[in-house]
Structures are given as structure tokens and as C-alpha cells.
Amino acid sequence: MGMFKLLRGALVGVAVMLAHPVVAEDDFGFSDQQTKRTVDTFTYGVEQCATVDVVFRIDCLRQTYSQTVRVISKASVYWEAEVALTRVNRGLYSYVRANTDDNISRVRVNGGRIKALTDASIPQATALYFDAVDKAAAVMRGGSPSETRYFEPIAEAILASKALLQ
């Protein structure tokens, strides 16, 4: 039994050592291309959200943040921006769950099915969104000079999305 545990431990160690370079090769550092992919993903999602009724827009934006986080997570140096976007996504998710209008069927937008909010909850949802976006943009603008250089276009895109709810 002791020999089995020893061999299993050795195999796990070798697997970790072999897997690490693969992860490092797939990881992207700061780049204009990564920033552009992130902004393009977000902007496309917002454009799709503009096509739905206002009761669906908060959940549509939540979905857009989720898709954008998947893109940005491919580059570990963007982790602060990823965390900021994830916070917006999670806040919207919780709000949508608590304020869904069950009398309105979901609609399909940008590859996902989104929920409608109750009419009464939209002003609070809008205020929540504006606050979350402002905080996320502040985080992205508050880093090192190289972070700020690559995060600024993302911050501008999320701030511009507020127009969708005005």
C-alpha cells in the first residue's frame, strides 16, 4: 500500500510539471489583440442587447459580461479586469434572479436565453448597473501604467454601455 501511494504521488507530480508549460504557452500577456478581442466581444453583446425590450436588457448585459469574462480569462495578466467584470456579472445575476418577471417568456439573444425583469425593478436595476460599471471602470483605471494602457479601452466600452439603459 505504501508503494502505491508513493507512485501515485510521483505521477501527480510529473503530471503537474508537464501540464504547467502547456498552460503557460496558452496564456496571453498584455496585447492590443487581447484587449481588442475583449472589447469586440463586449461591444457585440451590447449591440445585441440594444435589439431587445428594456425588460430584458439587464439580463442580456449580464450574459455579455459572462461572455467577455471568458475571453479575457485567457490572459492571466488581465486578472484585475477579469475580476472587475466578474463582479458586475455576479451582481447582475443575483439581481435578475431576485426580480425576474415569471409572466414573460425568455428570449434568445447572442447565443443565450435571457430573462425579463419586472417593470418595477428596472429603475433599481439601472442604478445597480451604473454603480457596478463605475466601480469596475475605476478598478481598471487604477492599476499600473501598463494595466491602465490595456484596460482603458475595456473601461471605456463598459462605461459606454450605460447609454443602453438611459
Score class of each variant (00 low, 15 high):
residue 6 L to W: 11
residue 7 L to C: 06
residue 7 L to N: 07
residue 9 G to V: 01
residue 11 L to W: 07
residue 14 V to K: 01
residue 17 M to P: 08
residue 20 H to A: 14
residue 22 V to W: 06
residue 28 F to L: 14
residue 29 G to Q: 09
residue 29 G to H: 05
residue 30 F to K: 03
residue 31 S to R: 00
residue 32 D to S: 09
residue 35 T to F: 03
residue 39 V to Q: 04
residue 41 T to R: 08
residue 44 Y to R: 11
residue 46 V to T: 09
residue 46 V to G: 07
residue 51 T to A: 12
residue 53 D to V: 11
residue 54 V to A: 13
residue 61 L to N: 02
residue 62 R to N: 07
residue 64 T to E: 04
residue 64 T to G: 11
residue 67 Q to F: 08
residue 68 T to Q: 01
residue 69 V to Q: 02
residue 71 V to F: 01
residue 74 K to L: 13
residue 74 K to I: 09
residue 74 K to Q: 12
residue 74 K to A: 13
residue 78 Y to N: 07
residue 78 Y to V: 01
residue 81 A to T: 12
residue 83 V to E: 15
residue 84 A to W: 02
residue 86 T to K: 06
residue 87 R to I: 10
residue 90 R to Y: 13
residue 91 G to C: 06
residue 94 S to W: 10
residue 95 Y to E: 10
residue 95 Y to L: 15
residue 99 N to K: 03
residue 99 N to Y: 02
residue 102 D to Q: 12
residue 102 D to C: 05
residue 104 I to R: 06
residue 104 I to T: 14
residue 105 S to K: 11
residue 106 R to E: 14
residue 106 R to P: 06
residue 107 V to T: 05
residue 111 G to S: 06
residue 116 A to M: 09
residue 118 T to H: 02
residue 119 D to N: 11
residue 121 S to A: 14
residue 127 A to Q: 15
residue 128 L to P: 00
residue 128 L to V: 03
residue 132 A to L: 12
residue 132 A to N: 07
residue 134 D to S: 15
residue 135 K to N: 12
residue 146 S to N: 14
residue 153 P to Q: 00
residue 153 P to A: 04
residue 155 A to Q: 03
residue 156 E to H: 06
residue 157 A to V: 09
residue 158 I to A: 04
